[in-house]
Design a protein around this nucleic acid. Structure first.
Lengths: 203, 203
DNA sequence: GAAAACATGTAACCGGTTACATGATTCT
DNA sequence: AGAATCATGTAACCGGTTACATGTTTTC
């Protein structure tokens, strides 16, 4: 049940509405967790019902209103407990590698196209993550600055360090995927050129 | 819908029963895909109903029987089509990295314990995958040998090469995770020793 | 004779996705 | 006035997990 903890992670920094959270999932945190609004709003209600959050009605314009949630003490305890509990590792389910294992069933061109898409996908991620690291280092991340402004001096360095550490991990992952797919492209070429050009007779 | 394609991948090699498939998911293919029997049997029935598989009742002992499935031509077309279609990349949902980003909320000891578990988990995977590569190279993989015996000479090298390629990719991933978590351990130590031992006065 | 492995399911549940639905406010 | 954004949901569905349920055959 990690959606709940992703929500905690954002709400311990500052109170937010469901819509604010939804936007966060589209950007920064969205890189490690994503959820559609249809999941966010009901979960917030459940968490409030369980006493982990407290919602406050805030007027918005002449007739509109919105509900801003903040984490209660019970909520902080729950979040801290989750943070201290080791993860359970689920068995892998990796379509990209499943496919790679049976690539002899694909047309060579289709195989290459898929490896190219793999490279593009992870190149896109890589760029975003490098940007994030730059933002953290330059102090130009709005979200992180808000978070740091509410953090004690002692914890400020930690907060930044762990964020950087996370993104560096994701960068390493992406780089590994790209390198792997590049090797795959060469492999497809090699396997198919050999087929067309059999080894010369040993005269 | 990749369970279906994982089943195809196994059944195009040779006919199998649901139980055989279930065992496969516990071992070799289980590294890139896993499914419990409660999912396998109904899916096989559905695939048969759709004409993608054909099941054959096989007597087993005096009273027992089992159902062995083989892929029909329509099934092969479906599998090949999937193999030629690029994957859609779903948005990430990565509990380990989500947690890492907020590690300042965990006790330092709990944080380190989780990084250690991460290392252990991926070390275990690494060992299994290295074994797989060795098996492929030595020709000691029973499953792969059965598969190769039904493969034309031209495709034999491809089959082996793509399998090796896949496992090498998984090895790189695991190594990256281990290296990352090791850096994390050092980071936790550094951040907490600094706290206890503030920088000496610049006299 | 007992245990391990073979063989095949059903049912309840759960987290997540997709599609649908609606209305207010702010910006241009 | 219209578009973009803010704001909040419901409902149907789907893939996957967990727990439950049952019987046969082979091996020791």
């Amino acid at each position: 049940m990690s959606l709940r903890n992703a929500l905690f992670a954002l709400l311990v920094v500052e109170p937010m509405t469901g819509y604010d959270l939804h936007k966060q999932f589209e950007s920064s945190v969205g890189h490690v967790w994503h959820a559609p609004d249809s999941q966010i709003y009901p979960e917030l209600k459940r968490m409030e019902a369980e006493g982990l959050l407290e919602g406050e009605e805030i007027p918005w314009g002449p007739r509109g209103k919105k509900r801003q949630y903040h984490v209660t003490e019970a909520g902080k305890v729950a979040f801290r407990t989750w943070m201290n509990t080791p993860l359970e590792y689920a068995r892998t389910r990796d379509p990209a590698h499943l496919k790679a294992a049976y690539l002899e069933w694909a047309d060579p061109e289709a195989a290459k196209e898929q490896l190219r898409v793999h490279i593009e996908h992870h190149t896109g991620l890589l760029e975003q993550w490098r940007e994030k690291v730059t933002e953290i280092e330059d102090g130009t991340s709005a979200m992180l600055n808000r978070r740091l402004s509410k953090t004690s001096d002692a914890d400020r360095e930690k907060t930044k360090a762990y964020k950087t550490f996370t993104y560096e991990g994701l960068i390493t992952q992406a780089e590994a995927e790209i390198a792997w797919a590049r090797r795959g492209l060469k492999l497809v070429d090699r396997l198919n050129s050999e087929q067309r050009l059999p080894s010369p007779p040993a005269d």
